[in-house]
Computed example of a mutant assay.
Amino acid sequence: MTVKDSHRARQAQATKEQVARAARELFRQQGYVATTIAAISDAAQIPVQTIYSAFGNKPAVLREIARIWIAEADTRRLAQESLALTDPAERLRAAAHWQTRQFVTGIDVIQIYQEAARADPRMAAELQSVWAAREHELKLYLESFEGDLTQPQGRALDIFLACTAAEVYHLLVLERAWSIQDYETWLGDTLVSQLLP
């Protein structure tokens, strides 16, 4: 790749991120379904045709929003680092930390995806695929505890998924006004009490 090509690629990515950030705010305020590409164009100050050239459609804009969110949350790195912890309770509290961070940085993205899934069968299938991938990663994570868990692997996964459901975070933090720290502490305590001796 030449210097010129590299510069173009960086410019194209910067444009995509500008569009994604504007779209995320509109999706949060107006809803995914009600927001048009024209509205995103106005908010991002990027021509409509440029948005169509860069993304093709609204679902692709949402995918870019999710990509930015996952990168900013940095939960993959945090999850990998937590695997190095030898104390099982510490490792579960570390999991509570990266799960909380994921919600703090992106509960709105999850809700936008859920709205999109209700309106578009393709987005519903995509969201189902995302949940399945998450479940697979958590299954592998819990398998790393080997004989430390009091629950069989399948039941341990069910408990972990129930405790870390986005709806629970929404209820406790956004509706019941728990602090982020209170939620994270509760989540860590609950995982430890439910999954360890």
Results as ranks from 00 to 15, higher is better:
Ala95Gln: 04
Ala116Val: 01
Glu126Asp: 10
Val3Asn: 11
Glu126Thr: 03
Ile107Trp: 01
Ser129Arg: 11
Ile40Asp: 03
Leu195Trp: 02
Ala125Arg: 08
Ala124Glu: 03
Ala89Tyr: 09
Ala125Asp: 14
Ala177Met: 04
Gln194Tyr: 08
Thr36Trp: 08
Glu17Gln: 10
Val104Asp: 01
Pro47Thr: 11
Phe145Ala: 03
Ser129Ile: 00
Ala79Lys: 05
Leu171Gly: 06
Met1Asp: 06
Leu92Val: 14
Asp182Gln: 12
Ala9His: 02
Ala156Thr: 05
Trp98Cys: 10
Asp108Leu: 04
Leu78Lys: 06
Arg67Ile: 01
Ala44Ser: 11
Thr50Trp: 02
Leu83Ser: 00
Leu26Val: 15
Ile51Cys: 02
Arg93Thr: 09
Gln111Ser: 02
Glu146Arg: 12
Glu137Phe: 04
Leu149Cys: 09
Tyr52Cys: 01
Ile110Cys: 02
Asp42Pro: 01
Gln194Gly: 07
Ala117Asn: 06
Arg63Gly: 05
Ile68Lys: 00
Gln11Met: 15
Lys16Thr: 04
Ala119Cys: 12
Thr150Arg: 11
Val33Arg: 10
Val104Phe: 03
Gln11Gly: 10
Arg67Met: 08
Ser41Met: 13
Glu17Leu: 11
Tyr32Ala: 02
Thr86Tyr: 09
Ala125Ile: 02
Leu85Gly: 05
Tyr169Thr: 06
Gly56Cys: 10
Thr86Pro: 02
Gln30Gly: 06
Glu175Ser: 14
Arg176Leu: 13
Gly147Arg: 08
Thr75Ile: 07
Asp74Ile: 13
Met123Ala: 04
His97Asp: 13
Pro121Val: 07
Ile107Ala: 08
Ala14Trp: 07
Pro152Val: 11
Leu196Tyr: 02
Glu146Met: 12
Trp186Cys: 04
Ser179Cys: 07
Val48Arg: 11
His136Ser: 13
Ala34Gly: 05
Phe145Leu: 06
Glu137Lys: 07
Pro47Phe: 07
Lys58Gln: 10
Val104Thr: 10
Met1Phe: 13
Thr185Ser: 06
Arg118Gly: 08
Val130Asp: 00
Leu171Pro: 05
Ala116Pro: 00
Leu157Gly: 05
Ile180Ser: 00
Glu167Asn: 09
Trp186Asn: 05
Ala12Cys: 13
Gln80Trp: 07
Ser53Gln: 12
Arg93Gly: 09
Ala124Asp: 02
Ser6Asp: 13
Ala166Gly: 15
Asp158Pro: 04
Ala54Cys: 15
Trp131Leu: 14
Tyr52Lys: 10
His7Glu: 13
Arg21Thr: 15
Arg155Trp: 09
Thr36Ser: 15
Ile40His: 01
Asp108Pro: 06
Pro197Leu: 14
Ile159Pro: 03
Leu187Ile: 08
Ala9Ile: 10
Glu143His: 04
Gln18Arg: 15
Gln99Lys: 04
Val19Gly: 00
Lys4Thr: 14
Val192Thr: 09
Glu126Ala: 01
Arg134Ser: 09
Glu25Ala: 14
Ser82Phe: 08
Gln99Ser: 14
Met1Gly: 15
Asp87Glu: 14
Leu92Ser: 04
Leu127Val: 04
Val48Thr: 12
Pro59Gln: 02
Gln111Thr: 06
Glu115Gln: 13
Val192Asp: 00
Ala119Arg: 07
Pro152Trp: 08
Met123Gly: 03
Val168Trp: 02
Glu137Leu: 12
Pro47Asn: 12
